[in-house]
Write a protein that binds this DNA or RNA. Structure first.
Length: 287
DNA sequence: AAGAGGCCCTGATAGC
DNA sequence: TGCTATCAGGGCCTCT
């Protein structure tokens, strides 16, 4: 569910809240996430300090004082909530993913600190928590993934040479984490709109200029989304104004049947299923 | 090797 | 009201 900007917003608020804090206890209520939560998971955290909350692509990386690393992936429906001790009903709303009311079901993991606890909620259970004992393994795990779209490695040359001769549409490539890591279904559509490239265009037909547009617009869209606090699609009940607002700026995503936002374009936004995922695009200005 | 498709899971919504 | 079908922001595995 969350793409790079949303995970980054969670990272920022989580780091602010738990960096330097000591974990009193961990409770796992359901181990059946996408990866089975291991038996020694709780023990690994007890009385340890959170050194830092980092991120690569859509993965959160928790550095623990005992030199282990906890990787968290939110999957499609994972959310993190912060529950303060003083007032059992108060949930700190530090990012768009935090609702003021804790969901009743699917609260799978609790990490308890002295004055508050963080709760991992995930109805679909596509997310996971993984403990990593050495950094070499972490490197190995991320090594096979493509560069982040925000990094300088995601350059015109990289894109052009990677896609050279590839018999697959560009939309699929933007979702392919081995090509570029962190873009998901919403931002893939938004990026291609800004590039004026239709999602079904075969990668091998992209010019260098197209690749340059992809490099530039990926950064542009994602950075703006981060500044706007990410995109909040689900309407949480009783959330404060701290939800993300990038959904208000979508040019194509979920705008099927609406007019193209480009001033001189009379196009209509279409939705088409490509490889089992929805793609949104303007029928006129994206070629 | 590259590319297509199925699958993991629950919940919200639309249509009959 | 209650059924069924479809869709949802991800990523892995298998088959060709």
């Amino acid at each position: 569910m969350p793409e790079l900007p949303e995970v980054e917003i969670v990272r920022q608020s989580l780091d602010k809240k738990i960096r330097g804090q000591i974990i009193k206890k961990v409770i796992v209520k359901n181990r059946n996430l996408r990866l089975k939560v291991p038996r020694n998971f709780e023990k690994n955290f007890k009385n340890q300090k959170i050194v830092k909350v980092d991120r690569f692509s859509k993965y959160l990386i928790l550095y623990i004082s005992n030199k282990t690393i906890c990787i968290v992936h939110l999957g499609m429906s994972g959310t993190i909530h912060i529950l303060e001790n003083k007032n059992k009903n108060l949930i700190t709303n530090t990012s768009f993913y935090h609702s003021l009311i804790l969901p009743k079901k699917h609260n799978h993991i609790e990490i308890i600190f002295e004055n508050f606890k963080i709760i991992y909620n995930d109805p679909r259970r596509f997310g996971f928590f993984e403990i990593i004992k050495n950094r070499q393994y972490l490197k190995k795990k991320f090594y096979k993934l493509g560069p982040e779209p925000l990094s300088s490695k995601f350059s015109t040359i990289y894109i052009y040479s990677f896609l050279n001769g590839k018999q697959k549409n560009i939309k699929n490539f933007l979702l392919d984490q081995n090509f570029v890591s962190g873009i998901g279904n919403i931002y893939a559509s938004e990026i291609l709109y800004l590039c004026k490239i239709k999602p079904e265009k075969m990668a091998k037909y992209l010019s260098k200029k197209d690749c340059q547009k992809i490099s530039i617009n990926s950064k542009k869209v994602l950075l703006r989304a981060i500044r706007k606090g990410g995109s909040s699609i689900k309407n949480f009940k009783n959330t404060s104004g701290k939800r993300g607002s990038f959904q208000n700026e979508f040019k194509v995503y979920q705008r099927e049947g609406s007019n193209c936002k480009r001033k001189k374009c009379n196009g209509i936004i279409y939705r088409k299923t490509i490889s089992n995922r929805s793609s949104f695009f303007c029928n006129l200005c994206q070629k």
